[in-house]
Design a protein around this nucleic acid. Structure first.
Lengths: 218, 218
DNA sequence: GTCAACATTCTTGTATACAAAATTATCAAG
DNA sequence: CTTGATAATTTTGTATACAAGAATGTTGAC
């Protein structure tokens, strides 16, 4: 762990922000974090720059770095974009997907189903992720896959919560089946629609969750 | 120009990279640029971090910062994503657009038409940009609008070239009309399709341009 | 002349130093 | 007690210093 500490720090901070160590608006104290990581302020400030561009922290001149946790509205917006990106991946993948990848999707789905039966949320989550990432790659568009993955990662902590909704896993399974069918039959529009609805429903469920937690929010 | 030099430097470098001052693979010399900007290496290195995350430069540990100009394949991919993002904006805008914004679109289109008649490429370009940015905003999704704008900006230098294609401006005008119609009638799918095709055609035209310039490319 | 081992020079990455701005504390006037 | 001004303290932003790694040049063997 001797080279490029700044990179590792950026990653570590990103992880910490994602996992909710910091609340929205918290100031990231340079000297405190420098001590904590055992480095000087310089690599920390470089890390801040990166986090700022991905929207995780806001860099206010002469004031410092403040963490920017997305609020309810922004989250809804992000889920909406995620839905559109996945739809795009699906549309392209319907024309470009390989037979092997289709098999991967079916396998992931099978394992998902087993996880549902066993009430195994963790396994479901892992296989679900594999399902979606496979579709990203099979879009045949590296740039699109990269963007989709980036947003997917950013929404990770919020997606996980709503798996707990009653019946969500089973419903999600059925949606996955529809996606595979559309892809297998090479139907771009159907694949796009199936994926958009699949993800959009997550956004709605999340909306419900928010509403139930914060009655007066928004 | 006394505060936050690092930010200005990042912007300036971005501009220089976009405008083709640096070729793909060029190394950005810290000390040379530091002199050039009249600052020390520190703010430059902070700027590098930001450029790295947006993909404009690659930061190789212990080697330096190298500019990463997108190649033909990556550009095609980016245009494809742009098409999908615009389609998404259109789909949402069809349901959410305001009457005033519709009027803005019609006005931009009228000015575009005038520019076409006058062979005024610059004006056409400006109004065309206004047209698209309006649709981004009218998606009613700030996050989406932001992402669309970011990619739009990145593709700027490449889009401009293909306006010179014969008849492109006139064809583009007709496509704009179709978009406005779909938005005015509140037809999400039609708006999405019109915008996707409109942008995708740019990607194709660009593909042609590439092929004509580099016969053996790809 | 070619190649390899070594020394030299450059460049990056990090730490520290310092100046300017912002925040906080102190204190006097009302 | 509140308010306003001013001083002390933090904290940021930038410059400089230094250490380690990479590139380059030199020399000697074959």
């Amino acid at each position: 762990m001797e080279q490029r500490r700044a990179d590792n720090i950026a990653e570590a901070l990103e992880e910490q922000i994602f996992s909710g160590v910091y609340m929205d608006g918290d100031r990231l104290d340079e000297v405190r974090l420098a001590e904590q990581f055992g480095v000087s302020r310089t690599p920390l400030r470089e890390a801040f720059q990166r986090l700022a561009l991905s929207g995780l922290v806001e860099l206010i001149p002469r004031r410092g770095a403040f963490v920017r946790q997305p609020g309810p509205i922004e989250l809804i917006e992000m889920f909406e974009v995620m839905a559109e990106l996945e739809a795009a991946c699906g549309r392209l993948a319907a024309m470009r997907i390989s037979e092997g990848a289709l098999e991967d999707l079916r396998e992931a789905n099978a394992k998902c189903q087993a996880a549902v039966d066993a009430q195994d949320t963790d396994t479901y989550y892992v296989e679900n992720e594999r399902f979606h990432k496979t579709i990203y790659r099979q879009s045949g568009n590296g740039f699109l896959a990269q963007e989709a993955l980036k947003l997917h990662k950013r929404l990770k902590p919020f997606r996980r919560q709503q798996l707990k909704f009653r019946g969500r896993m089973a419903q999600s399974m059925a949606e996955h089946e529809a996606v595979v069918d559309a892809l297998a039959h090479g139907e771009p529009e159907a694949a796009a629609r199936a994926l958009r609805d699949h993800v959009a429903v997550q956004g709605e469920k999340f909306h419900n969750l928010m509403a139930s937690l914060k009655p007066a929010a928004e």
